[in-house]
């Protein structure tokens, strides 16, 4: 068995390896940040004027940005699956598994590096947001909390995607499959429009969708919910931070052990 400190040092080696790729392939960063910038600008200026139902005292930019953050970091996490599938295909996972290294380090190093990518894209989006009228109206501590909730939730999704990558084994398929699942999940939520306009069934789904709770948690922590905004009816949205953290814990509790177990037995074909 490997000790905790060995697992940590192996994970650092793997994280470093993954971040070197980000440095060598700047396209990764460019595309990881370009599409959120595009979303910010498109929604802000194309839909912004048409989307109604917002309470007085809040601009669409303030409503929108936390939603874009949530969608982008969740999508950012899907890269974990594609990268693991790529490593499997290229035989790198075989090599790692034949080394006397920790059995979880490859996955820890991968998910941590991808969280790092998410930090970069959130920073770029926040700057773009400030340019188009988004503001943080809360304390520094709350604002940091808002970013952390987003990143921690996305980190959990990374572990789910690690499992998908180990099962699906083809990077392109992982990419497309996750798009089909994640795109609607990030749209049937309060990310871009207020839930009040949704038809009943969709609305219930959206209320309990953790993407809604993480978005609302960020909105509250950034001070983007004006005073007097009606209290949501669903418990999940009355306690968005708690509900999001519960989901995060649940996803990690299930998918960390499942992914590590899969990793131990997986092999390229």
């Amino acid at each position: 068995m490997t000790s905790l400190s060995e697992t940590l040092s192996d994970s650092v080696v793997i994280t470093k390896r993954n971040l070197i790729k980000v440095k060598r392939v700047p396209d990764l960063i460019v595309f990881a940040t370009l599409s959120p910038i595009m979303f910010v600008v498109l929604f802000r200026y194309v839909f912004g004027g048409a989307i109604g139902g917002l309470p007085p005292g809040i601009s669409y930019a303030e409503f929108l940005l936390p939603g874009i953050f949530a969608q982008t970091v969740v999508f950012g996490s899907t890269i974990t699956g594609a990268s693991i599938a790529d490593d499997l295909q290229k035989g790198l996972i075989d090599r790692f598994r034949s080394l006397p290294m920790s059995r979880s380090a490859v996955l820890v190093g991968r998910t941590v590096a991808d969280a790092g990518l998410n930090v970069i894209s959130i920073a770029v989006m926040a700057l773009t947001g400030l340019l188009v009228g988004w503001r943080i109206n809360s304390s520094l501590g709350e604002a940091i909390g808002g970013f952390l909730v987003l990143l921690v939730f996305a980190y959990a999704i990374s572990w789910l995607m690690a499992m998908v990558g180990l099962l699906v084994r083809t990077p392109e398929v992982v990419q497309n499959a996750s798009f089909i699942v994640i795109f609607p999940i990030t749209f049937i939520a309060n990310t871009f429009v207020p839930l009040e306009t949704f038809p009943a069934v969709l609305r219930t789904f959206a209320e309990w969708n953790p993407v809604s709770s993480v978005t609302l948690a960020a909105r509250e922590l950034f001070g983007n919910v004006p005073p007097g905004y009606p209290e949501p009816e669903a418990w999940s949205l009355q306690n968005p931070v708690l509900y999001t953290l519960l989901w995060t814990a649940l996803i990690l509790a299930v998918f960390v052990p499942v992914s590590v177990r899969l990793y131990k037995r997986t092999a390229s074909r």
């Binding site: 390896r17 790729k21 392939v25 075989d94 090599r95 790692f96």
Partner: peptide
């Protein structure tokens, strides 16, 4: 043991030196 599989299992974004250093570190 050392294993060289059927496909060259090297990280193509790392340099030759970085690849070897990484594997050395993982062998502790």
């Amino acid at each position: 043991i050392g294993l060289t599989g059927q496909y060259a299992a090297v990280d193509e974004y790392l340099t030759g030196f970085e690849n070897l250093e990484m594997v050395g570190r993982l062998y502790r």
